[in-house]
């Protein structure tokens, strides 16, 4: 019994437990309609407008966007839950908060990671839109389902491993 209690105090066990709790808490928040309407939806609209402006800069002159939809005369994408980077952000925040670093370092890790995920997600949306607009639907499906999702999460975790490896763990 004592060994079992002692093992719960192991930093790795505490980290994993903290990670699970934070992810579940964020998912409970996401299940609230108010959070979806007032935070997630406006954020997704902001992502959409940034992506659309990047695409215009890249030469898509006939492009228009409204809400979470970007379209040309040939193709349109709707940026939905799962394509907004929120899941990767939640995983990163949970991993940074659960790690035994100082609060200042946790804040720095979370902020830098958030910027990274936002940038990666922009690349994902722009690349996917370009593929779809060219009519390469098989390639679009492949990249959308199997490559882009993996790339965003994997690079987020690479960032976290790099960040965590530079921290001096703080044990209470």
């Amino acid at each position: 019994m004592k060994d079992w209690k002692e093992s719960l105090k192991q930093p790795a066990v505490r980290f994993v437990a903290g990670f699970v709790v934070v992810v579940l808490l964020f998912n409970l928040l996401l299940a609230l309609t108010w959070v979806d309407d007032n935070l997630i939806h406006p954020y997704t609209q902001f992502i959409t407008s940034v992506s659309a402006n990047v695409l215009v800069l890249l030469g898509y002159d006939d492009l228009s966007w409204q809400g979470t939809v970007i379209r040309t005369g040939r193709f349109a994408v709707d940026i939905r839950r799962g394509c907004d980077g929120v899941v990767a952000t939640i995983l990163l925040i949970a991993a940074c908060l659960a790690f035994p670093a100082s609060w200042k370092q946790r804040l720095i890790g979370t902020s830098l990671g958030f910027v990274l995920i936002f940038a990666l997600n922009q690349v994902r949306i722009v690349v996917l839109f370009a593929l779809g607009d060219q009519g390469s639907m098989n390639l679009f499906e492949f990249v959308h389902t199997y490559v882009a999702q993996f790339a965003v999460i994997a690079l987020t975790m690479v960032f976290w491993v790099y960040w965590a490896g530079r921290q001096k763990p703080v044990y209470s």
């Binding site: 699970v20 929120v86 899941v87």
Partner: peptide
Amino acid sequence: VSGKTFFPILIWLALCLPYMLGSVD
């Protein structure tokens, strides 16, 4: 929303974290 990536990440962290970040464990 989260589960598709949550479980692989959680399993990976639980298995590899103590060895990946020796200083933590």
